[in-house]
Simulated scan of single mutants.
Amino acid sequence: MTIRVATYSETQKILKYAPAVLKEATVGYYEPRRDIARQLASSFLIGGGYYIVYTENNVIQGWVGVGEIFDNYSSEKIGFIPEIYVMPNDRKKGIADKLCKEVFRKLKESGHKKVQLNVFSGNHAKDLYHKLGFQDISTIMEKGLDGDDL
């Protein structure tokens, strides 16, 4: 087992999974198009983000995207996790937990005091995030405007 920063080649492989990752992460709220999913996944890379991978026998079993955002409320740069994914056959082995702890270590080492992520309502991964110490700080609410109830 190895946890490390993804190579360029590994990052390209990860980006091929972008539609599947987005579909699963949004728990049915969106049916992602390949181009949009890839654009979302690569946008944090352009800003200096990167992936941390968990590999066994040189096979990627999971990854976490690591980036940085500016928090307008606290006026500080904070770590941001845009994506956490473990391959379906490798789930329930503690891989996401190990990956996240490595990300926390790296972010702390680089001077960050906080890390945030977004999670869609109904995503079962929210239980893991709570176990890792994440707390709910905001809720985005939505209402469709296509009905007659205006």
Rank of each mutant, 00 (worst) to 15 (best):
F70E: 00
P82M: 00
L45C: 10
K113A: 09
E24S: 11
G111A: 10
I3Y: 04
F44A: 02
A6W: 05
E76A: 05
C100Y: 13
G94C: 02
S110P: 07
Y50R: 09
A96H: 05
I81R: 01
R33Q: 11
A25Q: 07
G133M: 08
K113E: 10
A20W: 04
V115T: 09
E102W: 08
E109Q: 12
S42L: 12
G65N: 03
G111T: 13
G67E: 04
A20P: 01
L40K: 15
V115A: 01
E76C: 00
Q116G: 13
K113L: 06
L107G: 04
S138M: 13
G67F: 06
N118R: 13
V115P: 00
E83D: 10
L99A: 03
G147H: 11
G48P: 05
V5G: 00
A41K: 14
R33W: 14
I78W: 01
T139F: 12
E24L: 09
D35F: 11
H124I: 00
N57C: 05
S121V: 08
E109P: 05
G111M: 13
K114D: 08
F120N: 00
E24Q: 10
H112R: 15
D71T: 00
F120H: 10
G144Q: 12
D71E: 04
G62H: 03
I140N: 09
A25F: 11
R33I: 08
A37M: 11
L45N: 13
S74Y: 04
L15E: 07
Y51I: 05
Y8H: 08
D149V: 04
S74L: 04
I46E: 08
F120I: 00
A20N: 10
G48Y: 15
Y54P: 01
S110N: 15
A25G: 10
E10A: 05
E24K: 05
T2P: 03
S42Q: 15
L150T: 13
I36N: 15
N123M: 07
G79P: 03
G47H: 11
Y17N: 04
F44Y: 15
M1E: 06
S9N: 14
L145V: 14
L45M: 12
G147Q: 12
